[in-house]
Simulated assay, not measured.
Amino acid sequence: MAKKSMIITGESLARQGYCRISKRKNIVARIDVENWVELLAAHFGKTLHQMFTEILANPGYYEDLFRREWSKDQLDVSLTTARTVPSSFGCAVGYEEKDTPSA
């Protein structure tokens, strides 16, 4: 039964924009700021239009880069959970709202 709850947890993490950034260390991360494209544009010295053009030309590349290098929302998860979260490589999921924990 624990395996099923981990799968549900993995699906829940994926809905919140988490992707697996390390298969070996079972780390998942998400794009944790809404203005992530603006931050990338400033980093690369591009206009927003140029940055969006680059993102559309390379689906998943910049999203993966942001999750790996700049995201502060990274979690260590179990091996089973990590396997149920999609890989960050080529994943074009951008910023997603995080579920609020119920009290």
Rank of each mutant, 00 (worst) to 15 (best):
H43M: 08
R67S: 03
R20W: 02
K4M: 06
D64K: 08
F44C: 03
I27T: 12
V37P: 00
E38Q: 12
H49K: 13
T84A: 15
N58V: 00
E38I: 02
Y18M: 07
D32C: 08
M6T: 06
C19N: 11
L56N: 15
V37C: 00
A57I: 01
E97M: 06
M6Q: 15
P86K: 04
A2P: 07
P59N: 08
G45Q: 05
M51F: 04
C19R: 15
I55G: 04
I31Y: 03
R67Y: 06
G10Y: 01
E96R: 15
R30L: 13
F52S: 08
F66P: 07
P101A: 10
T100Q: 12
L40R: 04
K72Q: 12
V77Y: 03
K3W: 06
L56M: 06
Y95K: 02
K98G: 04
T53G: 08
D73I: 09
K98E: 14
Y95D: 07
R20T: 14
R15E: 13
I31H: 02
L48M: 13
E97K: 04
G94H: 03
E97T: 03
L75N: 05
K72I: 09
L39W: 02
K4P: 00
A2D: 11
E69K: 15
R30W: 09
N35W: 00
I7K: 13
V77M: 06
G17R: 02
E54C: 09
R83L: 14
M6A: 12
T47P: 04
S78N: 10
G60N: 02
V93T: 15
S88C: 14
S87I: 05
D64Q: 13
V28M: 06
V28I: 13
A57C: 03
T84E: 14
I31L: 01
S88H: 04
Y95Q: 01
Q74T: 12
N58S: 12
Y61C: 03
H49I: 09
W36T: 09
G17H: 01
D76N: 10
F44L: 09
A92P: 07
R68C: 14
